[in-house]
Design a protein around this nucleic acid. Structure first.
Length: 670
DNA sequence: ATTAGGG
DNA sequence: CCCTAAT
């Protein structure tokens, strides 16, 4: 075998699930006392991720937007296992939703109107999310928020976010950068690739998702809210059917238990999703015929994968995909709230026309309402194609990571939404829906799709997507993919002030930003992926420009924290603090010198000190990373010696006192 | 929640 | 950095 041979894979894209959910297990550690902003943040992530489930309805809601939250989410997070099987039923009920909704965020706002431009759909949704994320909580009482109104005056009507679900976002920065972080966040958090050899190219969750709804975008009146929940399922999900997946009974063969179990859960509005189901089914049909059940069709993400190299065993690949044993299926529940039966009926009728538009990227179902307003349900967006290159000797795990990074890079980059109508991109953002024909008859419902596209600097319009086979270009390693560390300059703080409690404040803040940018590569072995380049399909020239390092690492769930090497300035601050406080008061050190450095815990500081001492003791040749000035290292040794001595002294003193109670403190070893 | 250490 | 035992 030729070592280091390159394998090239072309990916047509993934389907991005709309509503991932974190595991309870992980949540445990992610749910400390959080600030409302965290909820907001999480809400944004989720909302952005689930934007595909946004339904835009006619406007009857108040123009003012209020967001309220209940800080105490403990009750909601107290999920239990039996909930896995039983809970969903209840949750499928709108009432249940509403109840839970009251427990969390709540946003009332205006929906998008039909005369909005085609290019605004997603933007509006995102904007709402952004506003959501930006809201500030009141200090007391049920926090109320104000959602900023965008120039068009479009708001989601109700945005409900399960408060039990959010990331540990203490490091999260709610700024403009958030917009491009949105979707990728959850991908990273919930779909991080793993090494245990499951579906190779699947975007999947690392954890078992909870049964509760994650995000709800709903409204009493017009806005429809659909909740699409996914959960990991045991490999035998298909045969067991014991999971909570909402499916249509018809043409459902096996999984009888599960289906029957669910049938009663289905709401009369279910037809609305029939279309989506069918569409998905259709899309997947060619790839997933091995899977006998529609479950798979419904749940299976798209795996349009082109193997550009023979080195990769296609057979095994497909086998893997088809393997019910190993594939990490996620049960997917779909909730359609407030779906008018009549509307659904219409859609259902339309669904007969559903066909797979090659250029279509997202499934959705727009339908007209009483007024001239349209409702859209975007089940998912298609992620642009990407190209990766990886060593043949790389491990599967590293391949997964690489793919994950590529996907994350794309999603984390500046995204924009494309609207595809009947296979053609709607490039004119200024046209109205009517002019574009989007709001026309139902026969076109299926022809409408949304795409996520890299928002490249210059070119703003896009041509037809997916033109034939993937074109590999720009397959060289992406220069900026990893080695640029803007950190250096960012960390030049004023650390030389004697005792400023917030010496590192600036550095910490700025460091945070830079810390998220460098792609954290797998650090093990030669298996590390090499070049990883998002590449543009024949039609997507911009793609190659997508920053590869946008991935924000604040992945939730038990994700190892990103590595954030201490800058010299930080070391300086640490040394200074330790000189003053000693080595046994890391809490104080933290407060003193790293107060505003959220990502530096006292444990981190303690660890850093440990390594500093070690570093100071080894030869300069053995040291790695950004060189620490010898002067600092000397101070480290000095301080370490001093405080070690003090500590020993203290111990001896205590011993002495223990034996001589009558004796006051005596200074030995001075 | 902190501290101290091993991994 | 993580994980934990012990405070």
């Amino acid at each position: 075998m030729v070592l280091n041979r390159r394998l090239e894979y072309g990916f047509n894209g993934y389907r991005v699930p709309t509503m991932p959910r974190a595991a309870r297990s992980a949540r445990k550690r992610c749910l400390p006392k959080k600030k409302v902003e965290d909820y907001s943040m999480r809400a944004f992530d989720l909302l952005a991720t689930v934007a595909g489930n946004l339904l835009v309805g006619k406007d009857t809601s108040p123009s003012s937007v209020n967001l309220s939250t209940k800080q105490d989410h403990a009750a909601m997070t107290g999920g239990n296992s039996n909930e896995e099987c039983q809970g969903p039923q209840k949750q499928l009920e709108p009432q249940a939703y509403d109840q839970e909704a009251s427990d969390i965020f709540h946003v009332d706002s205006k929906p998008v109107t039909s005369n909005g431009d085609p290019g605004n759909y997603f933007r509006d949704a995102n904007r709402a999310a952004i506003g959501f994320a930006d809201v500030k909580a009141n200090s007391d009482g049920p926090a109320s928020y104000k959602l900023e109104k965008d120039e068009i005056g479009h708001f989601p009507e109700n945005i409900v976010v399960d408060s039990s679900e959010y990331l540990k976002s203490s490091n999260y920065k709610l700024d403009d950068e958030i917009e491009r972080k949105n979707v990728v966040e959850l991908l990273e958090c919930s779909y991080a690739p793993q090494d245990n050899g499951d579906g190779i190219y699947s975007l999947r969750d690392q954890v078992v998702w909870d049964a509760k709804p994650l995000v709800q975008i709903s409204s009493e009146s017009n806005i429809k809210m659909s909740l699409d929940e996914e959960r990991s399922a045991p490999c035998d999900i298909f045969s067991q059917g014991k999971d909570n997946v909402v499916l249509d009974s018809k043409d459902d063969d096996e999984n009888s238990s599960g289906c029957t179990h669910r049938s009663n859960l289905k709401k009369p509005s279910s037809p609305a999703r029939c279309m989506g189901d069918r569409r998905i089914r259709k899309v997947l049909a060619s790839k997933c015929q091995k899977v006998p059940t529609k479950w798979k069709e419904k749940l299976f993400p798209r795996h349009d994968v082109d193997l550009a190299s023979d080195s990769c065993d296609k057979k095994s690949f497909y086998k893997c995909q088809g393997s019910q044993q190993n594939f990490p299926f996620k049960k997917r529940k779909f909730f359609d709230l407030n779906c008018q039966s009549n509307s659904c009926a219409d859609i259902d009728g339309d669904s007969s026309d559903d066909r797979e538009a090659p250029s279509m990227v997202g499934q959705h179902s727009p339908y007209q309402t009483a007024n001239s307003n349209l409702k859209f349900r975007i089940e998912s967006f298609r992620v642009p194609e990407l190209f990766i290159e990886i060593s043949e000797t790389a491990t599967v795990g590293s391949l997964k990571r690489t793919v994950m990074e590529a996907v994350s890079a794309i999603l984390g980059g500046e995204l924009r939404v494309g609207v595809v109508l009947q296979g053609k991109n709607v490039g004119d953002d200024n046209k109205t829906l009517v002019q574009t024909g989007i709001c026309h008859g139902n026969n076109q419902v299926d022809a409408l799709g949304f795409t996520l596209e890299p928002n490249s600097s210059q070119d703003a319009h896009f041509e037809t997507r997916r033109v034939g086979p993937s074109v590999f270009h720009g397959n060289t390693s992406h220069p900026r993919s990893r080695y640029s560390h803007p950190r250096t300059e960012l960390c030049k703080g004023n650390f030389y002030e004697p005792k400023g409690a917030n010496n590192l404040g600036n550095a910490a803040e700025s460091d945070r930003g830079s810390a998220t940018s460098p792609t954290d590569l797998p650090t093990k072995g030669p298996s590390d992926s090499k070049a990883l380049v998002p590449f543009s399909a024949a039609n997507r020239k911009n793609l190659a420009v997508v920053p590869l390092r946008q991935k924000s690492k604040h992945s939730e769930i038990a994700q190892r924290r990103i590595r954030r090497p201490f800058s010299v300035a930080e070391v300086e601050a640490l040394v200074q603090a330790v000189e003053k406080l000693g080595t046994g008061r890391w809490r104080d050190v933290k407060l003193r010198a790293f107060e505003s450095a959220k990502h530096r815990t006292y444990v981190d500081l303690k660890d850093k000190w440990k390594t500093l001492v070690h570093t100071a003791r080894i030869s300069p040749q053995q040291r790695r990373g950004e060189p620490v000035p010898q002067e600092l290292l000397d101070r480290v040794l000095t301080a370490h010696a001093y405080w070690s001595h003090q500590q020993a002294k203290q111990q001896l003193k205590h011993q002495y006192r223990h034996h001589h109670h009558h004796q006051p403190e005596t200074h030995l070893l001075l």
